[in-house]
């Protein structure tokens, strides 16, 4: 186990959104305000860590042939729990994230980490992997929602930066999500090639 390496993978070299290109649907849909980004990032990080731990614990119990079904049940269980808890204790976040919380079940970040990491590693390493990948996902959501909220609504985490009349409303729409994500992926690729080229 190597925490430094896993952190680097989660944030940069194997970033779930910008490099592995996983979980695009929720990434594009919910990154309209920073509050949404935090809520979604935290939810995914918690669910990813929990599902990684349990799938790692069960890795010798679950037969190869039914592993995907078993993973989905474990993931869906945690997602439903988080959904219920959010609705009960953070109704505002639950309302603005809406259908995207239940949809975390099919967020491929979680299934991909279960299949490619948790099912082959010890629980502690799987937990660290869940946290690192989850944080990598959250950071990208925060950057995207920051850009889209400032440009699209003229506010930063709810505080007005410039009057909403001058905001490019398009940035809050799916179009703005695709543009922001495309630019970020390109920047990431450019930065990575540059670093590799320098070595």
């Amino acid at each position: 186990m190597n925490i430094g390496k896993q952190l680097k993978e989660g944030f940069i070299t194997q970033n779930p959104v910008l490099v592995q290109l996983l979980g695009m649907c929720s990434t594009l849909a919910i990154t309209t305000t920073i509050a949404n980004g935090i809520g979604m990032g935290a939810s995914v990080t918690i669910i990813l860590t929990l599902s990684n731990i349990f799938i790692s614990l069960l890795r010798r119990v679950i037969p190869q042939q039914v592993r995907i079904a078993a993973y989905i049940v474990v993931i869906a269980g945690f997602v439903t729990m988080v959904d219920l808890l959010l609705q009960a204790f953070f109704p505002d976040i639950a309302e603005s994230l809406g259908v995207f919380i239940p949809l975390i079940v099919v967020n491929c970040v979680i299934l991909a980490r279960a299949e490619s990491f948790a099912s082959k590693n010890k629980p502690l390493a799987a937990a660290v992997d869940g946290i690192c990948q989850g944080l990598g996902y959250t950071v990208v959501l925060l950057v995207m929602s920051g850009i889209r909220e400032v440009l699209g609504a003229g506010t930063f985490n709810g505080a007005e930066i410039f009057p909403a009349e001058y905001a490019a409303g398009m940035m809050a729409l799916p179009v703005g999500g695709f543009l922001t994500l495309g630019v970020l992926i390109a920047l990431m690729q450019w930065a990575q090639t540059k670093v590799k080229g320098g070595k």
């Binding site: 119990v61 679950i62 037969p63 042939q65 039914v66 079904a69 078993a70 049940v73 474990v74």
Partner: peptide, 10 residues
Amino acid sequence: RLAGTLLGIC
């Protein structure tokens, strides 16, 4: 065993 494991997890 396959069915039992799945059933148990569910």
